[in-house]
Design a protein around this nucleic acid. Sequence first.
RNA 1: GCAAGUAUUCUAGAUGAUUGCUUGAAGUUCUUUUGAAUUUUAAGAGGAAAGUCUGGACUUCGUGUCCGUCUCGAACAUAUCGAGAUAGGUGCCAACGAAAGUUGGGGGGGAGUGAUCUUCCGGAGAAAAGGGCAACAGAAAGUUAUACCGCCGAGAAAUCGGUAAGGGUGAAAUGGUAGUGUAAGAGACUACCGGUUUACUAGGCAACUAGUAAAUGCGAGGCAACCCCCACCUGAAGCAAAGUUUUGAACUGCGUAGAUAAAUGAUCAUCUAAACAAAAUCCGGCUUAUUGAAUGCUUGCUACA
RNA 2: UGCCGGAUCGUCUAAUGGUAGGACGACGGUCUCUGGAACCGUUAAUCCUGGUUCGAGUCCAGGUCCGGCAA
Length: 113
Amino acid sequence: MLKKKYRISEKKDFERIYSLGKKVKGEFGMLIGLEDEKIANCEFGVVVSKKIGKAHQRNKFKRRVRNIIQNLLNQDFFKNKRLKITYIAFKNPETFEVLDKELREQFRELLEK
RNA sequence: GCAAGUAUUCUAGAUGAUUGCUUGAAGUUCUUUUGAAUUUUAAGAGGAAAGUCUGGACUUCGUGUCCGUCUCGAACAUAUCGAGAUAGGUGCCAACGAAAGUUGGGGGGGAGUGAUCUUCCGGAGAAAAGGGCAACAGAAAGUUAUACCGCCGAGAAAUCGGUAAGGGUGAAAUGGUAGUGUAAGAGACUACCGGUUUACUAGGCAACUAGUAAAUGCGAGGCAACCCCCACCUGAAGCAAAGUUUUGAACUGCGUAGAUAAAUGAUCAUCUAAACAAAAUCCGGCUUAUUGAAUGCUUGCUACA
RNA sequence: UGCCGGAUCGUCUAAUGGUAGGACGACGGUCUCUGGAACCGUUAAUCCUGGUUCGAGUCCAGGUCCGGCAA
């Protein structure tokens, strides 16, 4: 789980990111990012709908995504970036590795934009 | 030994490595304070957390009292009764309980060789009233009704009369067997079996059970998960309830798990195969999904002693 | 999280507890040089599992799916 300062927690933020942010689509989900000068570091949100599965399956998906973000934070991947990023899930991946690979590419693409 | 029934309990992986989260307590650093960062330590999902099917706690609202709702009449403030209309629910007996359509126990009905299982189980008018439904088929479907075939009698015949034993129809057709009786038949009558009602005796808190006696030729069946009748019960909404500070979102509501885009984890290796599935105000019960065990008790069959 | 509502042919809809009907569509045929229109025919449904009943789309219970509302 991410610490509180890395989380997005307001409904307004989500709506602003949806309408103004830049999008990177993948097989399992979509990243949306938006620059914001007011914040000190990157913030993240994860959205998983009921299509993915029942509650425990959704929880597992979220935990996997957050874990990947945590690993990237440890590698200073997001250093000196000020972005608000949400991840919207499309499909439940079978293994962790596939998701990890795709997400890393998506983040790289998003930062280039 | 095989097969089966039942009750209770446990289990949601283990070990190691890397990397993380929430809350409480204590310490350190920064900060005017609120607070932020960090270290140590303690605690951190379920039997169903689920479905939201129910009963409460709790909160607010309505109402002067009485409380399902409405109307009328009268009474009262140390504070409620009657009449009429009308909505919803419950329904064998007793017990536990805050309450419940729950639980475990008992009784009646049903299933099973049995252990055992199952059951929304008051009332169809005699005791406490009535209405309605039963397509098609059938002569006739609810009334002390009815004659299609058949049977019997009369008649030359057409037909008329008697008859519910037999056939046929249907989910359902007025108890069964034997005899008497008769033109042929029929509880019309008799015996036995079955039923109903009443009384008594015995057992049981009771529902009820068993027995005995008397009455009754049997007084007509099904559906109230159709209306209804009888008895009993019920103010409304829900933590997104609501409260506080203040005009803007916070905090409280909040718990020796206690979050708020929502913690209790992720990945890899080995062993095992292990499913269903994630708290959100809190408890009681129900229902549904489902893995692997452990323990106790019981029954049937077979074999041996 | 809490509270409500719904489910009938491919689609839109009917059906006092008694043979699930209609329209549009699809398919086939007639007519026509061809197509359309018209006419005739065919196709196809009660969300699932139990219960009450002689008999359930309908009544009752449980489940599944879909939708709505809530400072």
